[in-house]
Computed example of a mutant assay.
Amino acid sequence: MPPGATGQAGTPTRHTDLLADYPRLRAYYDRALARPAWQRTLERYPERLGVTVADSR
């Protein structure tokens, strides 16, 4: 898996075409981001770090 494909560091990957040549990896990445646990993490991240929601996505 390429660096940044998952985890918070990988969130900006959504806004690029880095995974365009890897449809199965892109599907895995999209499923991972759609998980309820990840959604909770994204919701709580700004509060925990004291940043705005816009800054965290």
Rank of each mutant, 00 (worst) to 15 (best):
M1S: 13
M1Q: 10
M1E: 09
P2G: 06
P2D: 03
P3K: 07
P3E: 11
G4Q: 06
G4W: 00
G4H: 03
A5T: 15
A5V: 15
A5Q: 09
A5W: 09
T6F: 10
T6N: 06
T6Y: 10
G7Y: 03
G7W: 05
G7K: 02
Q8M: 13
A9L: 14
A9T: 15
A9W: 12
G10Y: 00
G10F: 00
G10Q: 04
T11D: 14
T11R: 14
T11H: 10
T11K: 10
T11S: 08
T13V: 15
T13W: 07
T13Y: 05
R14D: 07
H15E: 10
H15S: 11
H15K: 12
H15V: 08
H15F: 11
H15Q: 11
T16W: 01
T16F: 00
T16D: 01
T16I: 03
T16H: 00
T16A: 03
D17M: 04
D17Q: 12
D17K: 10
L18I: 10
L18M: 11
L19N: 00
L19K: 00
L19H: 01
L19S: 01
A20C: 02
A20S: 10
A20N: 03
A20T: 08
D21K: 14
D21F: 06
D21V: 07
D21C: 06
D21M: 07
Y22F: 11
Y22A: 12
Y22P: 00
Y22H: 13
P23T: 04
R24C: 05
R24W: 06
R24K: 12
L25F: 03
L25I: 09
L25A: 07
L25K: 00
R26H: 06
R26S: 07
A27R: 11
A27E: 10
A27G: 03
Y29C: 09
Y29D: 14
Y29I: 09
Y29F: 12
D30C: 03
D30A: 13
D30Q: 12
R31K: 13
A32V: 12
L33P: 01
L33K: 07
L33A: 02
L33T: 01
A34I: 04
A34S: 12
A34L: 02
A34H: 02
R35Q: 14
A37N: 08
A37M: 11
A37E: 15
A37K: 11
W38C: 03
W38D: 05
W38T: 13
Q39G: 06
R40H: 09
R40Y: 05
R40W: 04
T41A: 12
T41N: 11
L42A: 09
L42V: 04
L42R: 14
E43N: 13
E43R: 15
E43D: 13
R44M: 11
R44L: 15
Y45C: 08
E47T: 14
E47W: 03
R48D: 05
R48A: 13
R48H: 08
L49C: 12
L49W: 10
L49E: 10
L49D: 07
L49Y: 11
G50M: 02
V51Y: 08
V51K: 09
V51E: 06
V51N: 04
T52M: 06
T52F: 00
T52K: 07
V53D: 13
V53Q: 15
A54P: 04
A54V: 13
D55W: 05
D55C: 07
D55E: 15
D55G: 08
S56Q: 10
S56V: 14
S56H: 08
R57T: 11
R57N: 12
